[in-house]
């Protein structure tokens, strides 16, 4: 990860596809609605149904196949890992294949492992894909203008986020400086802590200066703020949220109908 990657995350290219013009707030809502619905159950059917429905929509996600897999690579790795953990330590049932202390592989844990892998993919992939085309400035506009969250907090967070690229540069510089100061041979954990502390000091100082600069431009006063950028919320936004809800509901319904619904608590 480099500072340019952070900068890219903060000002992603504004593409031509429809998804780029959807209000980020709607993307957030759709991803959250879908996630929360799918979180309710742990079974392979609901996850698989959701995954199939989602994969059709990924074509309109505004990401090429390469970008899609680069962005979601981590999930493709994390899902099987969580699956293996479930395979070894999951609730056991039916035929037992291997047992060693707490470690226990059985029919039950195999089914759960499969469900876990599919579920993480079904929840994780759309979330990452929807986030990939979110511009933080547009998101902040949406949060403040559409959801009416307090503008001071939304803009404060946005301004803080802009410093992210600088922090990446700081982090790298701190790393080099520790080598130059003769500390490069000591333990990783200690150096990590030392660097994290230095980064916090630098960031708080910069934050205090930024706060002063923002106040000097009238931020946080009593005047009612206007917005230079409109944040429209209309048909396509509702459509996206509806899609998210529908996918979630259809997946849950499929699980209930097939009798594989498995409520997450208990």
């Amino acid at each position: 990860m480099s500072s340019t990657a952070a900068t890219d995350a903060l000002t992603p290219p504004r593409g031509a596809q429809a998804i780029y013009r959807v209000n980020p707030v709607a993307k957030l809502a759709a991803a959250l609605a879908l996630s929360l619905l799918l979180l309710v159950t742990i079974d392979a059917v609901s996850a698989a149904v959701a995954l199939v429905l989602e994969s059709v929509l990924f074509f309109w996600a505004g990401l090429g196949p390469r970008a899609f897999f680069r962005r979601t690579a981590a999930i493709w790795i994390a899902a099987p890992l969580a699956g293996v953990t479930t395979l070894l330590y999951g609730v056991s049932a039916g035929q037992s294949y291997l047992q060693f202390g707490l470690l226990h592989v059985s029919d039950g844990s195999i089914a759960l492992a499969l469900a876990t892998v599919l579920r993480i993919l079904a929840i994780g992939l759309p979330a990452v894909v929807l986030f990939a085309t979110i511009d933080p400035t547009d998101l902040a506009d949406g949060l403040a203008q559409v959801w009416r969250l307090p503008s001071r907090f939304v803009l404060g967070a946005l301004a803080g986020m802009r410093l992210l690229g600088l922090f990446f540069d700081d982090w790298r510089q701190l790393e080099l400086a520790r080598r130059a100061r003769g500390l490069g041979d000591t333990g990783r954990l200690r150096r990590f802590a030392n660097q994290a502390f230095a980064l916090l000091v630098l960031s708080i100082r910069r934050g205090s200066k930024l706060a002063t600069a923002m106040e000097a431009r009238g931020f946080g006063g009593d005047t009612v703020r206007t917005w230079a950028r409109p944040s429209p919320f209309g048909v396509k936004e509702w459509l996206l949220i509806t899609l998210g809800v529908v996918i979630g509901v259809v997946a849950l319904a499929a699980a209930v109908v097939t009798g594989s619904f498995n409520f997450v608590i208990g």
Partner: peptide, 27 residues
């Protein structure tokens, strides 16, 4: 007011948005 550290004088991620920031706050 304009202070010395350029990195903390700029508030937003795009040039136009940043110049507009003060006006927005003044309504």
């Amino acid at each position: 007011l304009l202070m010395q550290d350029p990195d903390s004088q700029v508030v937003l991620a795009r040039v136009g948005d940043d110049v507009a920031f003060g006006c927005e706050n003044l309504g």
